[in-house]
Simulated assay, not measured.
Amino acid sequence: MKDILRDIGIISRALDSISNIEFKELDLAKGQFVYLVRICENPGIIQEKLAEILKIDRTTTARAIKNLEKNGLITKKTDSNNQKNKLLFPTERGEAIYPFIIRENEHSNAVALQGLTEDEIDVLIGLLERVKDNVSHDWLRVKKDIKESIKKGNK
C-alpha cells in the first residue's frame, strides 16, 4: 500500500511552518490562525462545534481560544438560550486580520497547485475530499470509543 500520509504530513508541516512565520507578528501562535478563520466564518460558533469542524481535541481548542481571547482577537459571549455555551466572535482586530490570512491561504494554494491543469486540480480536490471523509469517519469512531471507554472506567 502507498504511504500518502507521509506526503500529506510533509505538506501540512511545511504550510504550518510558513504560517507560523507569516502570522507571528499578528499574535497568532502555532496554528491559531485556523481557529480565527473558522470563528470569522462562523460567528457565534461554540467551542465544541469548532473543535469538531477542525478535528482537534477540546483541550487544544480551549487553549487556542484562551490565547486568541487574551490577544484580543476573539471574544466570548454567553448564549442566552444555554448558559453553559460560550459563543465565539471575532473582535474588530480579529476581523481586520482575517483578509490577510485568506490572502496568505490563497497564495499557498496557488503555490501548491502550480503546474497542475484545471482537470488535475478537480481530480485532486475530489480525491482529497474522499480521503478527508474517510479520516473524519475514523476520527469520530475513535472519539466515540474513547468516550465509551472513559464511561466504563468511571462506573
Rank of each mutant, 00 (worst) to 15 (best):
M1V: 11
K2E: 12
I4W: 07
I4Y: 05
I4V: 12
L5K: 13
I8E: 01
I10L: 09
R13D: 13
A14F: 13
L15I: 14
L15P: 05
D16R: 13
S17A: 10
N20F: 00
N20K: 07
E22D: 15
L26T: 06
A29T: 15
G31T: 14
Q32P: 13
Q32C: 14
V34W: 07
V37G: 01
V37M: 06
Q47A: 04
Q47I: 08
E48L: 08
A51Q: 06
I56E: 00
T60D: 09
T61P: 04
A62W: 00
A64I: 09
K66P: 06
L68G: 03
G72I: 01
L73T: 00
T75M: 14
T78F: 15
D79S: 04
Q83D: 13
Q83I: 15
Q83T: 15
N85H: 04
K86G: 05
L88K: 05
F89T: 00
P90T: 03
T91M: 00
E92V: 08
R93I: 00
R93V: 02
A96G: 02
Y98S: 06
P99C: 06
P99L: 01
F100T: 05
I101E: 02
I101D: 02
E106V: 04
N109R: 10
A110M: 07
A112N: 08
Q114S: 11
G115Q: 04
G115F: 04
G115L: 06
L116D: 05
T117D: 02
E118F: 05
L127I: 06
L128P: 05
E129N: 11
R130G: 08
R130M: 11
R130P: 10
V131R: 05
N134Q: 15
K147C: 07
K147Q: 09
I150H: 09
K151S: 13
K151N: 14
K152F: 12
N154F: 15
N154K: 14
K155F: 12
K155C: 09
